[in-house]
Amino acid sequence: MKVVVIIPTYNEIESLKPIVGRVRAAVPEADVLVVDDNSPDGTGDLADELASADSHVLVLHRAGKEGLGKAYIAAFSWATDKEYTHVVQMDADGSHRPEQLPLLLERAAMSDRPDLVIGSRYVRGGELEGWPKSREILSRAGNFYIKAWLGLPASDVTAGFRVYRVAFLRRLDLSSVESAGYFFQTDMTDKVHQLGGSIVEMPISFAQREAGESKLSAGIFTESLKRTTSMGAKRRGRQLAGLARRAADKLRGK
């Protein structure tokens, strides 16, 4: 396996150096790509310093903040032009434990060659640490709704700790992924599933961020549910139209 770990950043100057160090210790053979959206707190400059001291650390500077999804798409496009076999996506804030990354990569390397491995909070063995119960209930309910409405084979559709097989990413039309915010995770899971990709989940421990300020809000959850409802409704409409056409064809055949 040739792996690159993608870490998008915006104002993560407190957490970047520790998280990059932990990734390098956990998977020393992997590269780390920091994707910085022109952070005003100097995160991009710090990333350049880390890269100058370690040839396994790379930096992709973007002109400004366009959202998590756009940062990942830029990084995926970059990675598919290289010789990597797998790309990892993870947060810079410490909520994803780099020490669990070897288990995800081990699963990704198994003979069934899954196209997407999701580090899941909501399968047996997965856990949340430090979350208030209200937030956990909201997250679980949202994931249940997304899974049921879109028919996705995953319990943690919104999870951000993932391993993609690069050969499968090359099959995707990355330019068609329009999601800029946190709906990106759902959008990508759906696209992998719709294209016939295999998706598996591995349990992880997900913690509260260790530094900086959370960028999540109630509005983000609301927007995700709206997008899910709209996507699912259009899909159900197409399915019903197809059933109606088939029924009409049978009647004409008689």
Rank of each mutant, 00 (worst) to 15 (best):
R227H: 12
I220L: 07
S15D: 09
G212Q: 11
F161S: 08
I204P: 06
L243H: 13
N11W: 01
V117I: 10
P102S: 12
P40T: 07
E129R: 15
D54M: 09
R97N: 10
E223F: 02
P102N: 09
R246N: 11
Q208G: 06
R62D: 02
R245L: 14
I137L: 14
G67Y: 01
I13Y: 07
G197I: 09
D81Q: 12
I137N: 07
V23N: 05
Q185W: 01
E66A: 14
A71G: 10
K17T: 14
F161Y: 15
L116M: 12
W78N: 03
P132C: 02
Q194T: 13
T43S: 13
E99P: 02
V117N: 04
F183Q: 08
Q89M: 11
G219Y: 00
I220W: 00
L101W: 06
L169K: 06
S198Q: 10
V5Y: 00
D112E: 14
P18C: 12
F168L: 13
E178V: 11
H86M: 03
E83D: 14
S179N: 09
L101D: 05
V59Q: 08
G130S: 05
A74G: 03
A159F: 01
G242A: 15
D36M: 02
L104W: 04
V32W: 02
I220M: 09
H96W: 00
V34E: 00
S111Q: 11
G64W: 01
G237Y: 02
P98A: 13
E127M: 07
D91S: 15
P132I: 02
M188S: 06
G67V: 02
S39H: 08
G212I: 11
S179V: 13
R62T: 09
A148G: 05
L138N: 04
E210R: 15
A218K: 03
G242N: 15
D54G: 10
K226W: 10
M110Y: 00
G21F: 02
L46F: 03
P18E: 08
L50Y: 02
M1L: 09
G64T: 08
G44K: 01
D41M: 07
S39Q: 06
E178P: 00
F168N: 11
V117Q: 12
L46C: 07
V123A: 06
V123L: 05
E129K: 14
T228A: 15
L103S: 13
D41H: 11
L50Q: 07
P18G: 11
L150E: 04
L169G: 05
K191E: 07
D156H: 12
Q239M: 05
H61E: 06
I6S: 12
E213Q: 10
S15N: 14
G69S: 09
R107E: 10
T85H: 12
S120D: 02
S55C: 05
